[in-house]
Amino acid sequence: MSMPNDNLECGHTLEELSLYLDTGEFADPRHLETCPDCRNGLDSLRRLTAAGSELLSNDLAAAGSGNDPWMKNILASLKLELRPGRDIPLRSDDPADRLTETEGSVFALIRSVADATPGAVAGKVRLHGDVTVPGEPITVSVDLAVAFGHPFMRSAAALRLDLAKALARHTELNIAGIDITITDVIDPSAAQAPDPAPQEES
């Protein structure tokens, strides 16, 4: 019987082997290659790890998909704080009034315009410059992910124009420039794989 005990006959322990499995650290690495007790012990621990992964896979399948009612319930009851960012002043008709729009709302505007570009999705958005002072020159930067094989470059100029128009209409910022950076290329057919999430009939 090669049933593992805490202390192996060679003098090493299963605790040492357990640690070795996670960290690769072992006092006498060459011993592991020749000691049958240690090799049996490691085999047992590896079988356990494999069974653990299998159990996790089972549990994950049993937990359902991100489109199931339990997830919808969780999402519906989440309360998320707004991320307003800086206050961007707007002109008021009455000098006593104070009108502003939040930096976060302008981010959302920029994202939605960029998202409307075929084959593109917005990433990080930034407004460079002091947006709290009227008339300060502001540079917009937008990260973008584009679909692989989609002729995006033709759209880049159009997007810059759309952004300029939207910003002129919905802000009073003095836009000095709009920088568009492509940070990701997405392959829509490959990206489908990680979350197939088919709706099970119940």
């Binding site: 707004l82 307003p84 206050d87 707007l90 008021s92 009455d94 006593a96 009034d97 104070r98 009108l99 502003t100 729009e101 939040t102 976060g104 709302s105 302008v106 959302a108 505007l109 939605s112 315009v113 998202d115 409307a116 919905h170």
Partner: peptide, 14 residues
């Protein structure tokens, strides 16, 4: 005195 803050500009075209 009115204090108006726009905290969300939502695009329906999204």
């Amino acid at each position: 005195v009115a204090r108006v803050s726009v905290v969300r500009i939502a695009g329906d075209f999204l």
